[in-house]
Write a protein that binds this DNA or RNA. Sequence first.
DNA 1: GAGGACCGGTTTTTT
DNA 2: ACCGGTCCTC
Length: 700
Amino acid sequence: MALNPQQKLAVSHVEGPMLVIAGAGSGKTKVVTSRICNLLNIGVPSSEIIALTFTNKAANEMRLRVQNQTNLQVWTSTFHALGVLILRESISHLGYDNSFTIYDAQDSLSLIQNCLVLLGQKKDRAIAKKCKMAISRSKNNLISAENFTPSSFEETEITGQVYSLYQKKLKEYGALDFDDLLYLPIALFKKEPEILASYQRRWRFLLIDEYQDTNKAQYQLIKCLAQTHQNIFTVGDPDQSIYSWRGADINNILSFEKDFPGAHVITLEENYRSTCHILNAAGGLITNNAQRYEKKLWSKQTGGEKVTIYYAQDERDEMRFIINTVMRCKENENLSFADMAIFYRTNAQSRLLEDAFLSQGIPYQIIGGVSFYERKEIKDLLAYVKVACFPSDAISFARVINLPKRGLGPSTCDKLYHAAAQSQMPILDFCIDLIHGNNSSVSLSKKQSAGVTEFVRILCLLQEKMKQNVAISDILKLAFDESGLTLSIKEDPETAQDRFANIDELLNKAISWEEERDETHSIYTFLEELSLNAQVKKEQQQALSMLTLHNSKGLEFPLCFVVGLEEDTLPHINCKDSVEGIEEERRLCYVGMTRAKRHLYLTSTSYKRIFGQSKFMTPSRFLSEIPEQYVQSNQSDFNDIEEDNEDAAIGKQVFHRDFGPGIIQRAYNTSLGLTYDIYFEDLQTTRSLVARYAKLQHGY
DNA sequence: GAGGACCGGTTTTTT
DNA sequence: ACCGGTCCTC
Ligand SMILES: Nc1ncnc2c1ncn2[C@@H]1O[C@H](COP(=O)(O)OP(=O)(O)OP(=O)(O)O)[C@@H](O)[C@H]1O
């Protein structure tokens, strides 16, 4: 595939700052990959190049492409994984131990909840979540706990206190949260210029994909690293900025030219991905954003089908349309399931799709979503291993000390935590001392003492095996067998089988993980990769993909659906109170649409079940913002009223705008004309409606 | 300390 | 409809 002149210009650029600003499908990622190959070809050592992508999946793909083309390995990762690399090497300069564990969102939330309770607040998950958001936002904006100021009426001084206490506890537990992985390297570089200088010498070329979604911390990190040599190459599309809620700031694009004076700016205008219909439809939508860089984007691919909008009556109808379309395209368009993807706004929307595909035997895979490693039984088992690896990790400790039940309830555990904190000991080591009688600061009943002894026995056993370099899978198996987690899984017979299967899967993953790497297989590395979500998920070859719009970034498929285009879903209800919010939702829709190569289907439903309640929806404003000439829809026959004759109508399914789906039970004439008695499922009542006025939709 | 009944908020998006 | 939190009883 030949690069166009603009792409060539970017790919052959060697030294100095460069910014590539270009629309969807114009080959930005392609340019990054090609430029890495070019640098390698002219002799730059692979160890001097760092490429940063938005997801681990994208990083793996890019690394593999480069490897295939040059046979060389280049460090390609997310910002967070780069943060871990830096911190593992140098965090001791900040007074942390370099054998830190990494807390996922659940762990951080538990810790924040604990901090709230310690500060005399009542236990409340919703408040803890808000706190977590505020702390996370602060870290991503490089605001320390000392400098924290409440930024909304919901946040109080308490949030600042929680932030301080939370950081203190993290340090005490030898743990970092996700945001620390960006925040601490910058703190380190500020504190120790010599360390920074060593990284500047080591990494001479930086490349950043999806630049429009970098936040302040990420920008600061690369700014530090590129300060001396200025060899920084960024590519992005302001119209695809969809992470402002995580602190992403398009102004980083403006800052780039300011912070790196003399930066070359290149634009790419040809889209190689989509047909004109799709590109123009998406382009028409995005022009509705007022705050915007105008960009040219065109495609040579004329013809093809228009974008299809399907207005469904209810969710069942929407699912039926999707299934029919999928099967039709598989038969007639020579597409495989792997060529198809469905995007939605929220993860919850995948449920109905899953049910539908399961019932039809259509193979599917969910990309992203609730991770395997977030499942309770997996987290429980891993918590045992983590406590053995990180004896200070009180969050993992608390997760499993009484799982299965060992007669150690909240108050006993609290005593242990307090006493351990008092004596400044790792919680596990404290318990070891306690049962050996080396410490008498906590008195336990016989039963409780037996419980602690049993727990400690398991962990010491695990630690011993780890010292002997026993295989990771064997450690996990041992942890599972010794801990008695079987008992707690069996407590819920409904789900037990699935959960045992998940445990099995984890063991198998560990086995193949170890087989893949020969020497460097420490259990610590294994746990770290799991925390970063960096495991390469094996893609199913013949499956249709289902993912959130956010996860669709950077991908492409011949056929795409964007589903649930209703007001309050997309745009989402929580984003509607500001123009910026709406504009970001519009960009989200734009990103989804521009993933499609040849076929694009947008669906909207007028009747939905939400929180167990029925709700009427109005079509998303975005649908009406797409220029009509690129669209075909079923809108025209949507309002058709079929004039039925009396008896033929009985038993038919109909749909009423207000009452939802129903079945005609009786048909007769009144002075107003043809009238039906209709039983409405959702209301569980029968109503008599005049056909002429009821505007029923038939035959669905 | 464990287990059950009851209440209320909940779903935005991810590394 | 579901999960997490609280309150109550044993
Ligand atoms: N010069 C070219 N000739 C042919 N195909 C190309 C060329 N450049 C890129 N492509 C193809 O166009 C598609 C889109 O490229 P790429 O994913 O790099 O775009 P992008 O700008 O990163 O897209 P987005 O920002 O929407 O994720 C890919 O399939 C790529 O192989």
